[in-house]
Structures are given as C-alpha cells and as structure tokens.
C-alpha cells in the first residue's frame, strides 16, 4: 500500500536501490512525503532504516534511482536539511563539552576559517534551553547520561534551523520523561511547518506520535498516513517472516559480482 502524495512533495525517493559491497540492502524504494508532517520509519533490525536515511542525506552512494528534497538534489539544499545520526555512532569520550557540540550545528553558517560569533553562541544556548539542558552547557560530554547526550544531538539539530529533519532513533535509550520532552519539541517544530522524519522502534507509541508512516523491510512495505498504513496486516508483512529470499538473492548478486541492473 503505497500512497503517492504527488502535489509538491517535500521529499521524493524514486525507485531507489542501495547496496553495500554489491549486496543490495534496499530494493526499489519509491515514495513521497508531504510538507509539515511527522513521519515514522518503522521496521525490524537490519531493515535498512538507517541506510535509507543515510542515502537520502547522500552519505552512501546510490546503486540506482534518485532522491529529491524540495525538488532538488540534496547537495543543493543541505542548508535546509538536518541529520541526527544514531547516538552510538560517535565516541562520547571526545574531549569537548555540550555547547561545542551544539555549535557544530552552526558550522555551515559560520563558514571556513572563522570562529563562532556571539549570535552563534546565543543560538546554541537557545537550542540547549529548548531541550532543557542549559545547566549542562559546559559539561564534558562523557559525563552526560545517554538521554542527555541524545538531547545534545537534538539541540545541535535545532541550532541548524533546517526545514526538514532526519533523526535516527532519537528515542533509543532515553527515559519516558525525556521522550516526552523530545516529542513535544518535535511536534512544535512540525506545527511551525517543518517536516520531521524519525526512525522509531516502539510500536506502542506510533499512532500517538506520527501523522505519516513508512513501513520498511529491505523493500517498502507501505507508506502513507498512519491511519491507513498502521494495520495488523501491513505490520505482519513488515515484521513477520524474514525476507530470506530477498536476502539470499542479495548474497547471490554479491557472490557473482552481478550488477543489480543490466
């Protein structure tokens, strides 16, 4: 069930295939997303959720197909796009403090060779305040709890002041109170017309949080408004029965070094 939202989509992913070392992990993904919605990407471990986001951000090469954001290639609109990686993807023992991490969200505005100005520091503090982390601004990042680290990442994204946000599991390892803080913040952003796309694992809260869903398991099982897509049948298709056939064919392609398109 793939609902195409054709009028002026803010994000268009067209027939996208992505491979690691010639083994496709995403097959023919094709969907659009309208402006100003909160989107959940749902699927089992290894479904390719992180890969999808990274590919949209242009961090992983595309085997075939294309991605358009604001009807442009990603490289033309990076200033308007923000990416929050999975928290475990960085080393939190790095010798720096929270505010310096948040300031990274301003780097594209600061430019090469220059150091942050007062306006940047103010924006960073403001972002920290929004995630309720003001008192931890000077704290060494390894001395923050997992949930606090996640909020620092979120503050960095807020400091970017983008129009579309991609977040990889922002709720992983945070407590209920922090999750509530974060979701309220994201909902506020959506009300202001921003689009927020979140990789999410907890099926309990899906209906409450998201207007729009992508169900993913190596291929796109469904995409559309939550009320149409969040059904037992489609969830069964997404989670039930590993797609062992697809995975096996992927292995074959890799073994024989086949191009996945002729």
């Amino acid at each position: 069930m793939i609902q195409q939202h054709t009028e002026a989509p803010i994000l268009e992913v067209h027939d996208l295939t992505v491979s690691y070392n010639k083994k496709p992990v995403l097959w023919g993904i094709d969907f659009t997303i309208p402006k100003g919605v909160m989107v959940g990407i749902i699927g089992p471990n290894g479904a390719g959720k992180s890969t999808l986001i990274k590919t949209i951000m242009g961090l992983i090469p595309i085997s075939s197909g294309f991605v358009k954001i604001f009807e442009e290639a990603i490289d033309k609109v990076r200033l308007r796009v923000s990416y929050v990686p999975q928290r475990e993807s960085v080393d939190w023992d790095f010798p720096t403090n929270a505010i310096d991490i948040v300031l990274m969200g301003r780097y594209h505005k600061i430019g090469l060779f220059k150091s942050p100005r007062k306006a940047d520091i103010d924006a960073a503090m403001e972002a920290l305040e929004q995630v309720k982390m003001t008192e931890f601004a000077q704290r060494q990042i390894s001395q923050l709890s997992g949930g606090q680290q996640q909020r620092v990442f979120l503050a960095r994204a807020i400091a970017q002041d983008a129009d579309i946000y991609f977040m990889d599991e922002p709720f992983a390892g945070v407590d209920a109170a922090t999750e509530q803080t974060i979701i309220e913040l994201l909902q506020k952003m959506v009300q202001k017309g921003k689009t927020v796309i979140v990789v999410h694992h907890d099926l309990q809260s899906v209906k409450k949080y998201f207007d729009w869903l992508l169900l993913l398991n190596m291929h796109l099982v469904a995409s559309g408004p939550t009320k149409n897509v969040f059904t037992d049948e489609l969830l069964q298709k997404t989670y039930g029965g590993k797609l062992s056939l697809l995975s096996k064919v992927g292995d074959l392609l890799k073994q024989h070094e086949f191009p996945h398109r002729e």
């Binding site: 490289d75 990076r78 923000s82 993807s89 080393d91 990274m104 970017q160």
Partner: peptide
Amino acid sequence: KEFVLISFDPSFAKSIG
C-alpha cells in the same frame, strides 16, 4: 573547527555539506 568536526562525527560533517 573542521578537523574537530570530522574527527568527532564524520557523518554529520558530510551531512552539512
């Protein structure tokens, strides 16, 4: 600034272009 960024978080560095 840039050296610090690519050392700490390469994928974010790429994501901001």
